[in-house]
Design a protein around this nucleic acid. Structure first.
Lengths: 343, 343
DNA sequence: ATTAGCTGCTAATACGCATTAGCAGTCAAG
DNA sequence: CTTGACTGCTAATGCGTATTAGCAGCTAAT
C-alpha cells in the first residue's frame, strides 16, 4: 500500500484539537516551553502521533534550523576508481568514522568535470550543499584554493598546503621530519654519501620531503646524486647510483624503489648488502614486491579523522581552523643497513 | 556561532538587479518561461552566480520541489573501516561512476547507531534528504526492508533480497548459477563425491550458493560431506574431508579454503593433486595466499553501476524498479583438477 | 481594584526555493 | 485611438517545521 500523503504537524494538530505549534512543542520544545503544556494535552498529542505513525519530515526540519549536518568531501580525482581507491580509502575511513561520531552525513561530490579535470568551482559547483567541506587530492588547483581561503565557506584540506592568499586550514603529515629522521638513521649507520631520487617540488608533499632531506645534509653527509625525474629506467638509475659512490638511496616514489631493487637483484646485488634504500612514505598495496622497504608511516586515517573534527569545529564554533602536521613514524623495514665500505 | 550564512537567491537577485524569482527561473525555469527572459538578463544573472559560486540549497529545493539530485548510500556496516573497505569499495566505485554520469552527488549515510547497530529508520531518518537511496550490506534488517518496500521512497538494494512484503528492487550477483557452473565443471573433470563447507542460509547470498549447489547434485553427483559451520579448525575440516572420500571441496568462505589448503600442504598433500578445492565467489585481497583458487567472479562494480542506474530510473520516471541478477563468470584458478582415483 | 504574574495556548514568521498569476509597458493591427 | 498580443519582469504563495511574541483568562498580592 502506498502512503497517500505524508502526514504533517497540521494534520496531527487538527486531530488532537490543538495548533501546529503545540505539536511541534510537544515533539521537541525546550524544557521551559514544555513546562507550560499540561500533561493532559501532551498525552493527547502523543497519542495521536502514535496512532498515526507520524514522523517529522527531516527536510523541513533542517530547513527551519538552517544547518543540514552534511559534510562535503571533494576529491580532485575520482575517489574510487581502482588506481585512486587505495590512495583515498584510508582517508575516507577516518573521515567516515569521525563524521559518524559527530553525527554528520557525508556528501561525496562527484565533481563536475569527469576524470582529471575536476574543479570545485565548476559550473554546477555543488560544494555549498554541505555545511562545510573537506578537500583532498594529490594535486590542488592553486586558484581554487585561493578562492576558498578568501571565501567564508568552512573547509579543511587534507595534506599540508602553502598559503593561498592566506593560511590554508589543513591536517597533513609531517613529511619533512619523517624524512629527516630517516636521514639521521642512515647517518647513524655510517652512511655519508647519499642519493635522492625524486622531484624537489612544487607539490607540497614532495617539497616537504626534499626540505627535510636537504635540511639534514651537511655535518658529514653529502648528496652525491640527485635524480629529479621520476620513472626513469631502473637500470639507468642503478648505474648512476653505483657510479656515484652513494651508499644509500632515498626514493620519493615507491615504484622507483621497487624497480631499482629488482634491477639490482638481477645483477646479483643485494639490498642492503651492497647499498641501502629508503622510501619516503608509506604506500598501500605496493606493486607486488616482497621487500619491506624502510620508510615512514603516513597516518592517513588519523589525518582524515582530525581534519573532520577540525571542520566540524569550524562549522559549529566559527573556529578559524588551524594547521596540523601529524608525526610520520619511521617504518623499520629491511632495506636500510650499515654503510658498506666500497672497494 | 552558527554556520556562515549561505548565499541565497535573494543575494544573487540583488547583485544582478533582478528579483529572486528571476534568478530561480534563470536557474531552472521551464523553457516556456525561460523564453521570456532575454539573453542579456540571463547572462547577467549567470555571471553573478558564477563569480559568487552560488549553489541552490538542496534542502530548500527539496522543500519546494521534492528533488535535489542526491543519491543516498546506506550501508549496514561502516563503509570504510578496514575490514569492510575491501568489501564495499568495488561497489562504491561503480556507484560513483554512474552517479557522476547521471549528475548526482552521493550522500553517504553514516547511520545513527555506531558500529553494528545501524538502522535506516533511526531517530532522524535522514534517508529522505536524498532523492532515493541505495542499500547495501551483508546483513539486512528484514523489518526495515519491509518498511522500505511498503513505503513510497525509491530505493534499490545491492544484492538479491527475498520478498519483504513485496518484491525488493535489487541488482545482485547470480551466485546460484555461478555455483552451478562450477559444480558442472567438477563433474566434467570426473568428480562425483563432493563436499560443501559453509552454511545453507538464511542470508540470501549463502542460500543462493547452496541452492545452486544442491540443484546441481544428483545425476551421478553425491554430497558426501556437509560442514555447516564456518571457521572450524582447518585440521578438523581436512580430516573430515579425507575421511569422507570427497574428491572436491566447495568452500563458501575463502578463509576456510586458505586454511585448509595450508593444512593440506603441511601434511604433504597437494591441491589439486590429492583433492580439488573451489571457492564460491571472488574475494578481493584475500589473506595472503599465493594460491589462486578456482571460483567465480562477482561483478561488484557493475552491480553498483546498474543499481545506481535503476535507482535513477525509479526517481526520474517513477519506474517500479526490477530485479536483476548479473552473471558471475567462472574464474579458472589452479585448484580444480581431474578427480583423483582414491586408493 | 489595580497590577503582576502565571497558565495554556496560538498566530505569525522565518527558512530558501519553485512556481503561478499577473502587472506594466510596447507594438502592431484594426 | 482602441484592442489585443506580446515582452520582461515581479509579487505572492506554498512547502513543513521551529521558534518567538503575545493573547486571553485566571489568581494572588498590593
Amino acid at each position: 500500500m502506498a502512503a497517500p500523503k505524508r502526514l504533517t504537524q497540521h494534520d496531527i494538530a487538527k486531530l488532537a484539537g490543538v495548533s501546529q505549534a503545540t505539536v511541534s512543542l510537544v515533539l521537541n520544545g525546550a524544557p521551559t516551553a514544555l513546562a507550560r503544556i499540561p500533561q493532559e494535552t501532551r498525552e493527547r498529542v502523543q497519542q495521536v502521533i502514535r496512532t498515526t505513525g507520524y514522523v517529522a519530515d527531516p527536510i523541513a526540519r533542517r530547513m527551519a534550523k538552517g544547518l543540514n549536518r552534511i559534510l562535503g568531501v571533494f576529491t580532485y580525482e575520482p575517489a574510487f576508481p581502482s588506481a585512486q581507491a587505495d590512495f583515498f580509502t584510508p582517508f575516507l575511513l577516518g573521515i567516515e568514522e569521525e563524521a559518524q561520531i559527530q553525527n554528520y552525513d557525508l556528501l561525496l561530490l562527484t565533481g563536475a568535470g569527469v576524470g582529471q579535470d575536476r574543479k570545485i568551482f565548476a559550473d554546477g559547483n555543488r560544494l555549498r550543499i554541505a555545511d562545510g567541506c573537506l578537500v583532498l587530492g594529490r594535486e590542488f588547483d592553486r586558484a581554487e584554493l585561493t578562492r576558498l581561503v578568501s571565501g567564508d565557506y568552512p573547509f579543511v584540506a587534507i595534506g599540508r598546503r602553502e598559503d593561498a592568499g592566506g593560511p590554508v586550514p589543513y591536517v597533513g603529515g609531517d613529511y619533512a621530519n619523517g624524512t629527516r629522521a630517516l636521514v639521521e638513521k642512515a647517518r647513524a649507520l655510517g652512511h655519508s654519501k647519499l642519493a635522492y631520487i625524486g622531484p624537489p617540488g612544487p607539490a607540497e608533499s614532495t617539497a616537504d620531503r626534499w626540505s627535510g632531506f636537504d635540511g639534514a645534509l651537511g655535518n658529514g653527509l653529502k648528496l652525491v646524486l640527485h635524480i629529479e625525474a621520476v620513472g626513469r629506467a631502473a637500470d639507468e638509475i642503478l648505474d648512476a647510483l653505483l657510479g656515484s659512490g652513494a651508499t644509500v638511496a632515498f626514493f620519493v616514489e615507491l615504484a622507483d624503489a621497487v624497480r631499482v631493487e629488482a634491477a639490482a637483484r638481477a645483477r646479483g646485488l643485494s639490498i642492503p648488502g651492497d647499498f641501502s634504500a629508503v622510501v619516503l612514505g608509506s604506500h598501500i598495496r605496493a606493486e607486488r614486491s616482497h621487500v619491506q622497504f624502510t620508510s615512514f608511516d603516513i597516518p592517513r586515517e588519523e589525518m582524515g579523522r582530525q581534519a573532520t573534527a577540525m571542520l566540524v569545529r569550524r562549522i559549529e564554533s566559527g573556529d578559524a581552523g588551524g594547521q596540523i602536521l601529524l608525526t610520520c613514524e619511521p617504518v623499520e623495514g629491511e632495506t636500510l643497513g650499515p654503510a658498506k665500505r666500497r672497494t
